[in-house]
Computed example of a mutant assay.
Amino acid sequence: MVKLVLLHKADSIYEDEPDVVYDFPRSYLKAVEEAVGDWVVYYEPVKAGPRGYFGVAKISRVIPKPGVEGRFLALIEPGSFLPFDSEVPRLADGRPLEASLTEPDGTPKKGGSVQLAVRRLPEADFARIVNLGLPQELERIEATRYDPQLAELAEGAELFERPVLERLTRRPYREVAFRRKVREAYGYRCAMSGLHLRNGGGRPEVQAAHIRPVERQGSDSVRNGLALSGTLHWMFDRGLISVADDCETILVSRNKVPGDVVGRLLAPDGKLLKPEDPRNAPHPENLRWHRENVFGQVVSGETLDWG
């Protein structure tokens, strides 16, 4: 097995969805097949945007692209994709983060391997990029973010070093990373009420909801998330509310949710608040899955008391 860097452009002719599939030509087939079962880092080229390295995922298998000669699909292992907490710049102190892109004097190479859409990535380079994008102390950073007393207690505390791969697969760490990215994408506002609520200490009250749960093949992509208030998160998970196929109209299970409750909780226009960056907008397929598999379903053994 081998780790890779995969170039991704949102407006490319290749139909990539970083948490689901990577579309590539035959020229990269051997390298991608070698990476099956291993991790890859996604990279946005200079002409496509400013992000640099922006996430990780694991390849589960490679198949020919149906109906397209000479193209292949690398299928991403469900639940493996994780966006970086902070996008990692292409250069650090003027030097590339990949050894293959670096001249002997430390300056960036030009042409050649720099242009490759699929690049082999040494273990040391992989660990360095992931550590910059998903720091070891991310859970502690989040836990002490809005509490000065906890932050003071944490100062000087020894950090338990976890191997990179263990960190990428630990559910508590991934939940923190997902929550931070989703809430940030929506400006800490509830996507269905539009409210921007913070408690006395400045902590945002909005939560991060998975549209398709991880245990049902959902991912930790921001495009599989919605920032929701606690009540609306509860309602969304129980199928009392959803989003229509126009990706903006909020649907309500009217036979289960009283009209006055709707008026108190949802935005007056009944529309979903979208992230400022359209690349973070909910993916239509995730919303479709929620409508077809969760919305309107009977919640067994649970009494809904609206007061």
Rank of each mutant, 00 (worst) to 15 (best):
F54I: 00
L272G: 05
A35W: 04
S253A: 15
D105F: 10
F126K: 00
G270K: 04
V5D: 07
Q297H: 14
S80E: 10
L150W: 09
D105H: 07
E292Y: 02
V32G: 00
S219R: 09
A31Y: 07
P50Y: 12
V41F: 12
L165R: 14
F72I: 15
G259L: 06
L266N: 02
P284C: 09
A209S: 13
D93I: 05
A92I: 11
L232H: 05
D93T: 05
Y53C: 08
S219I: 08
A48E: 05
V299A: 14
P96T: 03
D85F: 11
P204T: 08
G259M: 04
V114Q: 10
L168W: 06
Q115A: 13
E155P: 00
G187L: 05
S113Y: 10
E87T: 15
E205K: 10
P108Y: 03
P172L: 06
A124T: 13
L304H: 13
D305F: 08
H283R: 11
V214C: 03
P18V: 04
A191V: 12
F81H: 09
P50F: 13
L4Q: 07
R179C: 01
E142F: 12
L6N: 00
I76S: 01
V88D: 00
L29R: 05
L29F: 05
K256P: 01
F84V: 06
A92T: 02
F295A: 03
L116M: 12
K47W: 14
D237R: 11
Y186K: 03
K181I: 13
G201K: 12
Q297M: 13
P104Q: 02
P45S: 07
P275W: 10
G67E: 10
D260E: 13
I63G: 03
L195H: 10
K271D: 02
A57C: 09
I13N: 14
E175H: 13
I241C: 06
Y53R: 10
E276S: 11
S242L: 06
R216I: 04
I13A: 15
R145G: 00
F295W: 01
S27K: 13
P213L: 06
